[in-house]
């Protein structure tokens, strides 16, 4: 990609489009995030940041909930989303278009709505919750509720990134593998999976990143108990409501850095998984 930038213009207008891109990125991403870092950097020392936003036990507990639940939700989506994409690409069945279209619904639904809907369903009075409660399984107002809400909002990312990769994979390749004596599992493991892995990782990364920042639905379903079901974004809000602006941005900066590092790692992994392509 960087190579293409260096090549002198076959297409005109590079200067203008590059300038506009930078301006666009600056106003939407670089300035707000830069401002966040600057605000924190000028108002607290690194030692203070370390104390209030990295090692503070309550913050650590919140990070564990946020990152743990997001990771689990993205992993569930990697499996479930792959399955949904597979079914949508490979099979024809009545109502396929409806299901295909409804995959995008979590994108459009206000997350407060999905949060309230899930809570109603899984609370001990709800349709599903009332069957789970006698079994001793608590979903709403507990950790599983957070994971379910995050899985819901992350689903479209995996399905929509994996779908095109699966569609471009000729069925004949699978037939070839089978005729060469591969078992079904070998075909999946050695033919299909390597081909879709890069896009699966992209979808996983997007679902994970989206889950990390999610607040609206979690607020309703989590119960918000400190040290147990309190997510990092809620802790940011709690600090803000106590007028602790610096403490709030401190957590924000730490999450930003952690998310950036994780996404970078996933990108590297993705590049590695593409090593045999092209």
């Amino acid at each position: 990609m960087a190579l293409a930038l260096k090549r002198p213009g076959v297409l005109p207008g590079f200067g203008l489009s590059m300038g506009l891109t930078l301006l666009y990125m600056a106003f939407l991403v670089l300035i707000p995030l830069g401002g966040l870092v600057l605000f924190t950097g000028t108002r607290m020392t690194l030692a203070q940041l370390w104390q209030t936003a990295v090692v503070d036990p309550r913050v650590v507990a919140a990070y564990r909930v946020s990152f743990g639940a997001s990771l689990l939700a993205a992993s569930l989506n990697a499996i479930g989303g792959l399955l949904v994409a597979w079914v949508l690409v490979r099979y024809d069945f009545p109502g396929k278009r409806v299901i295909d279209a409804s995959v995008d619904l979590p994108f459009a639904l206000p997350t407060a709505v999905s949060g309230i809907a899930l809570t109603t369903l899984y609370a001990h009075t709800g349709w599903i919750g009332r069957w789970l409660e006698p079994l001793g399984i608590q979903v709403a107002y507990a950790w599983p509720g957070i994971v379910i809400a995050l899985t819901l909002i992350g689903l479209p990312f995996v399905v929509r990134t994996v779908q095109p990769a699966l569609a471009s994979l000729d069925q004949e390749i699978e037939e070839a593998a089978a005729s060469l004596g591969a078992t079904r599992w070998q075909t999946f493991r050695q033919v299909i999976l390597p081909a879709v892995l890069p896009s699966l990782l992209t979808g996983f990364a997007m679902a994970f990143a989206r889950a990390l920042g999610e607040f609206g639905s979690i607020y309703f379903i989590a119960g918000n108990m400190p040290y147990k079901t309190e997510i990092a974004p809620l802790l940011i809000l709690i600090r803000l409501e106590q007028f602790d602006y610096v403490g709030a941005t401190g957590i924000g900066v730490v999450m930003l850095v952690a998310a950036f590092v994780l996404l970078l790692l996933i990108n590297l992994l993705q590049a590695w998984s593409r090593r045999y392509q092209d």
Partner: peptide
């Protein structure tokens, strides 16, 4: 004024930073 093309990666990075700072 963006030069039309042909600058190194370093120059690109510099432009990004300068622009970001200026806009900021």
């Amino acid at each position: 004024n963006c030069p039309r093309a042909g600058y190194s990666r370093m120059a690109q990075a510099a432009i990004v930073i300068v622009l970001a700072v200026a806009v900021f």
